[in-house]
Amino acid sequence: MAVHSSPRGWRALVATTLIAASSLTSGAAFAGPTLDKIKERGVIKVGVGTTPGFFAPDSNGKWQGFFIDYGRALAITVFGDPEKAQFTSSSPQQRLPALQSGEFDVLLSGVTVTISRALKLGFHFGPTIFYDGQAILARKETGVKTAAELDGSTIGVQSGTTGELNIADFFRKSGHKFTPVTIEDTSEFIAALEAGRVDAITQDSSDLVGKLTQLKKPDDYILLPERLSKEPLAPAIAGGDDRWLELVNWTVNVTIQAEEWGITSKNVDEFLKSDDPAIKRFLGVDPSLAETIGLDPKWAYTIIKTVGNYGEIFDRHLKPLGWERGYNNLWTKGGLLYSPPFR
């Protein structure tokens, strides 16, 4: 083709490319590229981590955990089948780039919502499903009772997490000094602490609670009272698919709303007979709502029947590890969980 030889040809080429590119991007925002890909593939690719209680394989090689159940709930929303979620473990350094490259459709790996992740990196976040905070676990023999007394100590931090920055900020603010020891692997933390390589370790309290149960002598360690940060953990997705984002949002809301109404996996069938019009719409007895939003009328019912409401998911995976509800309770019970109305 002679397009390249004349200046006019060049201009035509550039113009065509620009139009093609703009139509591609605008088309992408409208059609929902992630959701299309998911439906074409037949499974949702979910990025997870390995933290006891939140996500871990059981002896049969099946993923189990708090976040895993949300992956299954998402699969019900899209396919009506909890088994259509495909979980893959990824390291903290790798998970966001992998989400960006399309390796995952959604990250349920305990990603903290931050403004730079949202606005600089362009990720979208669903509702916070776990309110976490960074804490410090110290050896008792160092004699510390609060984080301020850790001046001059050696603290293990995990590389590539917000935790690394938080602890540096915390010590800078208080004017104290500390030596960070960067540890890549979560399971190495305990080894470093028990071997005395570090005086303390810092991580989200969710990770530390799981670690306490693994320590050979849990009484030799103290969880310091300070919370160094707010760590709202939410599902993360790549930008550019509004419909997919809303499906993630409302899948989470189903579990919260169900708990507010007292609907559990065990009694959900009785609620099908409820006279409350809101519950009728919610469970699909009255299909008018589902029809307008383009979802299967039974999707909320199936989610509750299969994985349960928020409280059930929490109690199943996190309570055995010694977790209290704390902030992760309904707004009616002094917590932060609040679902917008289903109407």
Partner: peptide, 14 residues
Amino acid sequence: AKASAADPSWLGFY
């Protein structure tokens, strides 16, 4: 092997 020790019912036998 590493992931096998993250199972809550068999925690920490690294």
